[in-house]
Design a protein around this nucleic acid. Sequence first.
DNA 1: GGTCATAATTGACCGCGGTCATAATTACAC
DNA 2: GTGTAATTATGACCGCGGTCAATTATGACC
Lengths: 235, 235
Amino acid sequence: MTIGASKTANSTTLTRRERKKRETRRRIYSAAFELFRENGFEETTIEEIADRADVGKGTVFNYFPHKTAFLAAIFEDWVNRIIEEIGPAEEWTGSTRGKLEQLFFFLANNSAQSPELFRKAIFEHLRSIPEEDGRLKAPATMHEFLAMIRTVIRQGQDSGDVRADLDPKHAAALVESAVFKTIVIWLMEGGSLEDLHEEMSAKLDIIFDGVSPRTNNCAPASKRSKRVRSARARS
Amino acid sequence: MTIGASKTANSTTLTRRERKKRETRRRIYSAAFELFRENGFEETTIEEIADRADVGKGTVFNYFPHKTAFLAAIFEDWVNRIIEEIGPAEEWTGSTRGKLEQLFFFLANNSAQSPELFRKAIFEHLRSIPEEDGRLKAPATMHEFLAMIRTVIRQGQDSGDVRADLDPKHAAALVESAVFKTIVIWLMEGGSLEDLHEEMSAKLDIIFDGVSPRTNNCAPASKRSKRVRSARARS
DNA sequence: GGTCATAATTGACCGCGGTCATAATTACAC
DNA sequence: GTGTAATTATGACCGCGGTCAATTATGACC
């Protein structure tokens, strides 16, 4: 592989092949996304996607080896857009809880249109990693996303927001499963953003304070519901 | 529908039709379950199931409208077996945490063989309820299961184990999503039962105590890891 | 320009999940 | 027994996801 020499002169160090490849992928992805939103995921056939993208059916499978790979791609896109919008986790400020709420509020906001599609994408994400036949699926973004949560947790530990004796891995996994499930159910039931926020706050409430009763004198229970409200104000 | 009259005399008030129907369903289910365990879910075709059950292909779809309906049935079976084994939630004794651990330990025990199958069944369960085309899927057991957890939570509130200001619905949903996700990952990674218990304890730890640091003097953090150990001893 | 290895494209093809019109079976009336 | 309405069984058939051998585009080297 001795790239870089003569041919790559103009545009950004990309051969014509590479450029075409990306362009084709983009065309296929766009066509698919459009069609999914127009007609639904199951209702869209690969051939329709191929037609709209103006390629042969086989070509589609060169870029997206299974139909579900589109869902993984959509999820990835989604996360990337959010990362772009709110910047790297390391730079966020505020309370740990506030950060998590913001993060998931972005997720929800972006998914509110075409809920069916995003529900499927989330499920694909949750299922991802190994499939029995040995193919790996979309692990990159999966880890990227979990990593974001983990970073927030770790920052929380540094700032004293979160118990130091906790393994961030466990906490992050718990947060992820809870919130995604909440979003999925919310997407299914078609509630308002307010509803989702209510649900999410309830879950985060438990995650932060636990289900065990506090020993009487410290951290009175009455304060809790208030905190939910004030946390929402930030967004 | 004026049933019950003449024909239903012998055996337990069942017409021949009804008996045959159940028998056929049982045969198909058994054939499917066997084949799934022998060759895997994806690798088994409906026709193979039909052959082994000695019915036509179309008949299979009379009893299980989609292939995934088998997964729902497997999940249902699974939960029912557990219910049978440990009795109705109302009658369990012990701490709330102990009950939950036992419950999920039973789940895990039953799934340890043929992990692939149970992973899929759990996923089917988590996804269940609506599918965009309007068909409902396996809501019965889903609710039954969530209801079990909710019952445990409510009992915990009565006995002072669990914060009284909590909506059992939220707590149950959180527990469910966390533990199922834990089991799914465990099934994928092929760890030992010990590993699973470790993971589950960590999650329940957070669910019970929360991620927030305790205010210094009450409930010292050092006690926590100990509790995990002692909780395991019960099983 | 021409040659060749490699990468990308393509549509004919296959297998399986799911449908449906038709046939067989059951229940019941007489 | 015979008639008949309702239920269940069945396999030919269809559509779509996914494969693959054959074809075409690309770029390195002369």
